[in-house]
Amino acid sequence: MSSSHFYSSITKKIIMSLMGLFLLTFLLVHLTLNSFLLFDKNLFNEGAHFMGTNPFIQVFQWVLFAGFAIHILYGIILQIQNWVSRPKGYKKRAWMEQSPFSKYMIYTGAIIFIFLAIHLGNFFFVKMGWVGNGVPELGGKEDMGQLVIDLFSNGGYVAFYVIMFLLMGFHLDHAFQSAFQTLGLNHPTYWGFIKGLSRVYAIVVTLGFVIIPLVIYFR
């Protein structure tokens, strides 16, 4: 298979890393919004309302979907080419990867994709009125917070959600610093810091997303 059909190897990686960095930023925004739910449901509803009506965000959400689609598409192309590059494997292969989760990016990526589909089905599609019974209302306004709280009162769903986010954390731990390396931003003076920041990002984002459903469930 000639990779020139899908741009050079480095171009592919650069596209993936830019989309990936965009997704990493989006996750922070999403987490911030979710965290409102811990303090005040109305604040969360206002945030959700803003996200659901602001024209800029409305356009932006399609950019976000495109970002996901491109990242996923290139992730799959890249992985297939990489499998093809070694038609016969080794009998014995030691663990040599220095960024541990780099080994499983396609699998953790697939997990994120499955979660994403379910997640959209639970919230976005309900909100758009494509599935389910619509969003509960409170004083004539959409009560997105209640929709979330209802889901998180189901122990099975909470467990599923927590496991999915732990697995996503593995993707993020490699992803953050990898994007910098791909974009050529590796300087001996800052590299240790970037790697550290990558781990901190992965831990903070994962714990953040995991704590919210747990708090709601046990509250």
């Binding site: 050079s8 190897s9 480095i10 890249l78 780099s102």
Partner: peptide, 16 residues
């Protein structure tokens, strides 16, 4: 880089 791709080497995913 073009030659490297053409020859069928894989894409780097920064495993180091």
């Amino acid at each position: 880089v073009a030659k490297m791709d053409e020859l069928g080497f894989g894409n780097c995913t920064n495993t180091y």
